[in-house]
Structure formats: structure tokens, C-alpha cells
């Protein structure tokens, strides 16, 4: 595998944006390009992630090209997935040897539509979507299954929330943050029992951009390139009724294949939109109880749909670049109850 490094990262997150997607994305992409040290036209490949349903327009990603510039014509692709999978496609493209660098971006607004209803469109269209369950409810079913067998406790979930929102105070991009004691959290009413409001994701609007560069060129561009040492993603079956909801086999497999434990991890950034899912991911991906997870605050602090996975990777990379750790696991997940999971291992020089 070729050595590939994350050389720059930028993000914008807000609870609710009145700007258009192009207006949100343009400064973020410009910042990532500027901080990469490469000129826009020097970047060999571009790949993005988005979903048409968030703005209710087919080909939403076509207009987004206006925000990154595509003249002269660019080598470009797009996934209708979280930007973390766009990063994967870009990384694969560099592995072919055809390109040396890539701009990866993603964007999404959860505020314009009824996001609960929009997200119900990802379920079995014949037998499940017609009943209009929201992801909060499906995740609550998963949480209860976990509570029943004791792989999580309500207190442990509250501890995840308390720690995440406290850590988020240091994250300027977090839209939900604060100091909440575990006891206080456990007193709060249920949103969808057994989940309370703060166990659920902080849905937000925003955009994310990242530049990755291969080999020696990355070393020239930054003092401390953050290397992608392993990269993998896997998927589980969609029907919740056929899955053991207390397990996430695809997360375990992705972390193994990415080589998460070939060496000691200093911290992890995982996409856990619901508090119990962090606990499940810790178990599946073999993260020790005392390992720092989501120092950014994670999805409980900012859940920018289509960007949240790429944000976790970028947050982890920037933390390593700042010298706050040498080796991290970053994870992206999407689909109901984390059906699809991606793991990337990052290392500082």
C-alpha cells in the first residue's frame, strides 16, 4: 500500500444554517485547499459524499461542484454516502498510482426537512418504511436489547453523554455542549424510552473538506503528516430482525482489517449517534475501557449528516497533527443501528 497522509482538514457545523449548501461548502473547501499547501489545480482527484434527500433535489451534488471549482475539468467522483466513504474512494484512487492527491468533501443539512421522516426512507421500503419508524425509535430498540442482556447500562450511557458534552466544550464546531452530571442526566425524561434527548445525536448542518496526499509530497507539505495506515469498511444485513442488535460484526471486522490493534492506540474517534452505540463500538472494536474515545464530543455534540464520519476522521487527524497523540482509530458508521461501518487507522510521523 502507498503511504497516504491527511494534510489538511476543515469543517463547518451549525445547528441550523440559512446559507445554501454551496455557500456553506465554499469557504470550507477553500480553507482545506489553502491549508494543504497545494493550489486547487494541483490536486489530482476530487471525491464527495452527500444525499439528495437532505435538500429534496435530485443531483444535489452537481451544484456543489460550484463550491470547489472544476475548471479546467477535474477527475471527480461522488458517493451517495457519508464523506468517509468518499475518502475511501479517493484513497483507493491514490493506491492505483494514477493520482497523487485528492480533495474530499461532504455536506448536508438536516434542518430543512423532517429529518426523522427523511431517514425512514433508508429502511425496507416494502415492510418497514410504510410504518414510518424514526431512527431514534430503532436505536431505542437496539439500546433496550443491549440493556436486557447487560452489555450496557443506563448509567454507562449517561456517562458517555456526560463525558462527550464536557469534552465538546473545547470543540468550536460542536453545536451541543455542557457540563451535565451523570445523576442529573439519569433524572431527565425519556425521548424514546430507553433513550433520553441527550442520548440522541445533535443533528446539525454543515460541510467538511479534507486534502490527502501520497508519500514524500505529503512530507514536503506539512511538518507532521498524519498517515493513513489501515483502511477498511464492511456492511451487515439491513433487516433489524435478523441481526443480533447487541453486536456489530461489520465494525469488528472493519477494525480488524484496518489493523487497529497492530500497535497501541492513543485515542479513538467513533461515529456513535446514540450513546449506547459508543459502548457497543468499544466492545466490537476492542477499545479498552480507559481509552479516550471521542475527545471531540462526537455525534452527541455535532451530527452533521453525510459529514459526521469524515468529521471523526478529520478530528482525529487534527489531534494527531497537534501532537495530542500518535496513533488513533477513526470510525464512520451509517445505516440503521450502525449497519455499515468504516475504520481507518491514523498515525503521526
Amino acid at each position: 500500500m502507498r503511504d497516504v497522509a491527511i494534510v489538511s482538514f476543515a469543517q463547518s457545523n451549525a445547528a441550523s444554517e440559512v446559507r445554501s449548501e454551496v455557500e456553506i461548502l465554499q469557504p470550507v473547501a477553500a480553507e482545506a485547499v489553502k491549508n494543504s499547501g497545494l493550489a486547487r489545480t494541483e490536486i489530482d482527484f476530487t471525491c464527495s459524499g452527500s444525499s439528495d434527500w437532505l435538500q429534496g433535489q435530485p443531483f444535489a451534488f452537481v451544484m456543489a461542484l460550484d463550491a470547489v471549482g472544476s475548471w479546467p475539468p477535474i477527475k471527480e467522483s461522488h458517493v451517495e454516502q457519508d464523506g468517509a466513504w468518499a475518502l475511501y474512494e479517493a484513497w483507493v484512487k491514490i493506491q492505483t498510482g494514477e493520482v497523487e492527491s485528492a480533495l474530499v468533501y461532504s455536506f448536508g443539512k438536516t434542518s430543512p426537512g423532517d429529518i426523522a421522516q427523511v431517514q425512514a426512507l433508508q429502511l425496507d421500503p416494502y415492510c418497514v418504511t410504510p410504518l414510518w419508524p424514526d431512527l431514534d425509535s430503532l436505536s431505542a430498540i437496539q439500546a433496550r436489547a443491549c440493556l436486557e442482556v447487560g452489555v450496557v447500562t443506563e448509567r454507562a450511557m449517561a456517562e458517555v453523554v456526560s463525558r462527550s458534552l464536557r469534552d465538546a466544550r473545547d470543540n468550536p464546531h460542536a453545536v451541543r455542549k455542557g457540563d451535565h452530571s451523570v445523576d442529573d442526566l439519569l433524572e431527565r425524561p425519556f425521548q424514546v424510552s430507553p433513550l433520553r434527548e441527550l442520548d440522541c445525536p445533535a443533528n446539525s448542518d454543515g460541510a467538511t473538506a479534507m486534502v490527502i496526499v501520497a508519500g514524500d509530497r505529503a512530507k514536503q507539505l506539512c511538518d507532521r503528516p498524519v498517515w493513513i495506515r489501515g483502511f477498511d469498511h464492511r456492511i451487515d444485513p439491513p433487516a433489524l430482525g435478523t441481526r443480533d442488535l447487541t453486536r456489530i460484526p461489520s465494525a469488528k471486522l472493519a477494525a480488524e482489517k484496518a489493523g487497529a490493534h497492530r500497535d497501541k492506540l492513543d485515542f479513538a474517534e467513533v461515529t456513535a449517534p446514540y450513546s449506547h452505540q459508543e459502548l457497543l463500538l468499544r466492545r466490537e472494536m476492542g477499545l479498552a475501557d480507559d481509552l479516550s474515545v471521542n475527545p471531540s464530543g462526537g455525534s452527541l455534540a455535532t451530527h452533521t449528516l453525510m459529514s459526521c464520519g469524515l468529521n471523526r476522521i478529520g478530528d482525529a487527524a487534527m489531534r494527531i497533527a497537534a501532537g495530542k497523540g500518535d496513533r488513533a482509530l477513526a470510525h464512520a458508521g451509517q445505516g440503521p443501528c450502525l449497519q455499515q461501518n468504516l475504520a481507518v487507522v491514523l498515525e503521526g510521523e
Partner: peptide
């Protein structure tokens, strides 16, 4: 476009 079928991430449902 996923709007043709009215589904989000249809490939996740179709994966297995």
C-alpha cells in the same frame, strides 16, 4: 437519483 425509487441509501437495504 434515489428519488426515482423514493429510497435513501437503497444499497444498504439491497446489500444482502
Amino acid at each position: 437519483p434515489d428519488m426515482f425509487e423514493g429510497m435513501m441509501y437503497p444499497e444498504n437495504y439491497l446489500s444482502d
